[in-house]
Design a binder for these strands. Structure first.
Length: 490
RNA sequence: GGCGGCGUAGCCAAGUGGCCAAGGCGGAGGUCUGCAAAACCUCUAUUCGGCGGUUCGAAUCCGCCCGCCGCCUCCA
C-alpha cells in the first residue's frame, strides 16, 4: 500500500470541484452505484459507467481501502412492468433474465462484484422504503393524494444543490410532468405510486402500491451503508432529477447528510453519434463479442478515456485496443517464460525506476482518476520490460521480471490485461515450458509446429514457410526466437 | 429558451500560464532474422477550431465567431 502525503482527489458533483476524497471511516469506503433497470440487456453505454465505477473501486482497493459497495437492480418500474406484461411473465422471472445477462457481461469485462446487489422488490427493501415514506409522512414532508404519496419539494430548502442552484428555474422551464396524479406542485415527485390492477403492488400503512423510482436507492443505500456514506455513483443523466430527489427524500427523512461524494460518469458516443435506438447503435457487450471483439478490448477502450469526457466508442478504437493489449499480454507471457525472480527489491537503480513508474501511475489516478496518464506508465513499463528482455537475450538475466510485476500491479486497477483468455502464448519446441504447452492447441497442430522446426533444422525453408502459412490460415501465428518457436492467436 | 461540456498529429487521447505539446494505434526508415513475425532504435503536430485581446510568456486566461455534444423529460 502506498502512503498518502498526496491525497486522492476526485471530482465531487456536489461542489463541482475536484477535491480530496475523505471517507467517513478511516480505511473503509462505502459506495453505492445506481445499477441497471432490468428491462433489457445493458448496452455498452451502461457498461462505460460500470467500468468507470469499477476502476474507481479497484483504485480504492489499490490504495488499501476496504470497499463495501452496493449496486442495485431496479426491477420494478414502468418499463419492467410493461416488459413483463408483454412477455406474459411474472415480473421477477422477467427481470431475473436480464440480471443474469448483466452479470455475464460484467464478468466478461472484469468488473468486480459488489458486496451487495439489492433489488427493489426484495421484501427487505420494500419494507425499508415503506418505513422511509412513513417517516416523511410523519414529518409532513410527504403527502398523500389519490392513493399515492408525493414528496413536497418546497419543504426541502436545499433542493437543487446537486444539480445546480436554479432547480426551480430548471423545473419552471421544463415540460410539465404528464403524470395524471394530483400533485400539489408539478415538481413534486412520487415516493409511492398507488396500486393499479395490472401492476404489481405491495401493502403499506399508507396504501397499497409500488415504490417510486428514486425511493429505492435511498432506502437501499441507507439500509446497507447507513447515513453519510462515502460515494454515490452513476451516469451524468442521473444527476437530475434522480440523485437530486434521492438527496431530498433521504436527508429530509433522516435529518443527516446522505452522501459525502457524488461521482458521475459522462456518456459515450458510438461512431461519433449519440447512442439511440433509432440509429441502431445501441450495442451490447454480447453483440460486440459476437462480432469478434474481445471483452478486454472493450474494457481497455472504456477505461482509457477520462470518465468525465465523452468517449467516442468505435470499432476502430476496439481494434486499436486489441493490438495494444496484445502487446502487453505478449510481454507478460514472454517475461514469465524468461523466468527471473519477480520480487527483486535489492535496491538497484532499476528498482527505483520501477518504483518511480508505479508512483507516477498512482499519481495520475490520484488526480481525479486520470486513466489516460496512468496508461502511459503501463506502456512505459512495457517498453522498459521489453528492452530488458531484449538485452537478456541469451545471457538470461532477470531484468524484465520487475517490470512485468509492475504492469500486473497497475493492472489491478486497469484490469484490461490478461483478461479472459487473451494469451495462449506458449513456447513450443524450445527447451523449456514443454510441459505447460498444450492447453488450447490441438496435438495435431503442435506436431505441425514440430515438423516445421525439423524442416528449419534441415534448412528446408520452403517447407517451413508452407507450414507457417497453413497455420496462419488456422489463426495461429508463429514467431521464431532464439529459444525456439512460439505461437499465439493474434 | 435555461444550464453545461467539448474541438490537440491520419485515428484515439493526456496536458489548464513557462523544460523539445504525454501515451496508444497507424505510417516511414533501421537493427535482429534463412525469410517473416515479435521486440528494440530513430523519425512522424514550429503547433493546439478561427479571429482578436491580456501577459515578458498561452493549447492553457478573457472576448467574439464557427462546429460538435449533453442535461433541463424515461435514460449509465
Amino acid at each position: 500500500m502506498s502512503t498518502g502525503s498526496r491525497p486522492f482527489r476526485l471530482r465531487n458533483t456536489l461542489t463541482g470541484r475536484v477535491e480530496p476524497f475523505s471517507p467517513a471511516r478511516p480505511r473503509e469506503v462505502r459506495m453505492y452505484t445506481c445499477g441497471l433497470t432490468v428491462y433489457a440487456r445493458g448496452h455498452i453505454g451502461n457498461f462505460r459507467t460500470f467500468v468507470a465505477q469499477d476502476v474507481l473501486r479497484r483504485f480504492l482497493r489499490f490504495k488499501g481501502y476496504r470497499v463495501v459497495q452496493a449496486m442495485n437492480f431496479t426491477d420494478v418500474d414502468d418499463k419492467t412492468i410493461r416488459g413483463a406484461n408483454e412477455a406474459g411473465l411474472p415480473l421477477r422471472q422477467y427481470t431475473d433474465r436480464f440480471i443474469g445477462q448483466f452479470f455475464d457481461d460484467a464478468d466478461a469485462l472484469g468488473i468486480e462484484r459488489a458486496e451487495h446487489n439489492p433489488r427493489a422488490t426484495d421484501p427487505r427493501y420494500i419494507k425499508a422504503m415503506a418505513a422511509l415514506v412513513e417517516r416523511l409522512l410523519e414529518k409532513g414532508i410527504a403527502y398523500r393524494a389519490d392513493g399515492s404519496v408525493y414528496f413536497r419539494v418546497a419543504a426541502f430548502p436545499a433542493y437543487g444543490r446537486l444539480s445546480g442552484a436554479g432547480a426551480s428555474d430548471r423545473i419552471a422551464g421544463a415540460r410539465v410532468d404528464s403524470d395524471e396524479y394530483d400533485k400539489e406542485h408539478a415538481h413534486d415527485f412520487a415516493l409511492w405510486k398507488a396500486a393499479k390492477p395490472d401492476e404489481p403492488s405491495w401493502p403499506a400503512s399508507f396504501g397499497r402500491g409500488r415504490p417510486g423510482w428514486h425511493l429505492e436507492c435511498s432506502a437501499m443505500g441507507l439500509e446497507l451503508l447507513g447515513s453519510d456514506f462515502d460515494l454515490h455513483c452513476g451516469g451524468v443523466d442521473l444527476v437530475f432529477p434522480h440523485h437530486e430527489n434521492e438527496i431530498a427524500q433521504s436527508e429530509a427523512a433522516t435529518g443527516k447528510p446522505f452522501v459525502r461524494h457524488w461521482f458521475h460518469c459522462e456518456h459515450l458516443l458510438v461512431e461519433g453519434r449519440k447512442m439511440s435506438k433509432s440509429l441502431g447503435n445501441q450495442f451490447t457487450v454480447r453483440d460486440l463479442l459476437d462480432e469478434g471483439f474481445s471483452a478486454a478490448a472493450m474494457r481497455h477502450l472504456l477505461a482509457g478515456v477520462h470518465y468525465r469526457q465523452q468517449l467516442n466508442f468505435t470499432r476502430a478504437g476496439l481494434r486499436q485496443a486489441q493490438v495494444a493489449i496484445g502487446r502487453v499480454n505478449a510481454f507478460l507471457a514472454r517475461s514469465d517464460r524468461a523466468g527471473g525472480g519477480a520480487e527483486a527489491g535489492d535496491g538497484t537503480a532499476e528498482d527505483a525506476e520501477v518504483a518511480g513508474a508505479l508512483d507516477r501511475f498512482e499519481a495520475a489516478l490520484d488526480d481525479d482518476l486520470n486513466t489516460s496518464r496512468a496508461l502511459a506508465e503501463v506502456f512505459f513499463a512495457l517498453k522498459q520490460g521489453n528492452r530488458a528482455l531484449h538485452q537478456q537475450g541469451a545471457a538470461g538475466g532477470t531484468g524484465a521480471a520487475p517490470w512485468a510485476a509492475a504492469i500486473r500491479r497497475m493492472n489491478e486497477v486497469i484490469g484490461s490485461f490478461e483478461l479472459g483468455k487473451e494469451t495462449s502464448d506458449r513456447a513450443v519446441g524450445g527447451e523449456r515450458d514443454e510441459q505447460e504447452a498444450p492447453s488450447g492447441l490441438a496435438p495435431e497442430l503442435l506436431s505441425r509446429i514440430e515438423e516445421r522446426a525439423e524442416a528449419r533444422r534441415r534448412r528446408d525453408f520452403a517447407r517451413a514457410d508452407a507450414i507457417r502459412d497453413e497455420l496462419a490460415q488456422e489463426g495461429i501465428l508463429l514467431e521464431d526466437g532464439p529459444r525456439g518457436t512460439t505461437w499465439r492467436r493474434p
